[in-house]
């Protein structure tokens, strides 16, 4: 994975928790650094001159290291959710699957990425592409959720 492409594409300057933090986007060959002071948020503190350690993408992408797997997407049925053929997905198996979660589920013995819908009428797996019908899980049919998609990574 090319780190630079990820940063410039999906994480321009919004840092953790949506706060604005400047990030060095085109860094020299050295490690990435995150600066502590925020832009346009009052008076910059002189004490903020020091740097934190190099920016570690694991910190941002991997909440549960033992339970996190990276997988490759094949196909375009999730195009509507911004997930394209060839993208990498960071899948967290420790995360609880909720209504609306994008999940990797077992469909006909295959790992398949879908949007999970839990409603009064039961459980469904929906594609995000009108060409693909939803899969409805009626009573007695077991849905196996393999993991919850936490992030998508695309390289350009």
């Amino acid at each position: 994975m090319n780190m630079r492409s990820v940063l410039s594409a999906d994480y321009p300057s919004a840092g953790l928790n949506g706060r604005i933090r400047p990030v060095v986007l085109n860094p020299p060959p050295g490690p990435l650094r995150r600066y502590l002071c925020r832009v346009a948020a009052g008076f910059p503190s002189p004490a903020d001159d020091h740097l934190e350690g190099p920016l570690d993408l694991n910190e941002h992408l991997v909440a549960h290291p033992a339970a996190t797997f990276v997988v490759t997407v094949e196909g375009d049925s999730m195009a509507g959710a911004g997930i394209r053929d060839g993208d990498l997905l960071v899948v967290d198996r420790a995360r609880e699957a909720r209504d609306g979660s994008i999940v990797v589920a077992v469909v006909d013995g295959e790992l398949t990425v879908k949007r999970l819908r839990k409603g009064r009428k039961g459980v469904r797996l929906e594609a995000e592409n009108p060409a693909y019908p939803a899969i409805v899980f009626h009573e007695g049919k077991e849905l196996v959720v393999w993991g919850v998609v936490a992030h998508a990574i695309r390289s350009y």
Partner: peptide
């Protein structure tokens, strides 16, 4: 293989 960028597991979106 979950430990190799070249051989990552594949999930289908079809």
């Amino acid at each position: 293989s979950p430990a190799s960028w070249r051989d990552l597991p594949r999930v289908c979106a079809r």
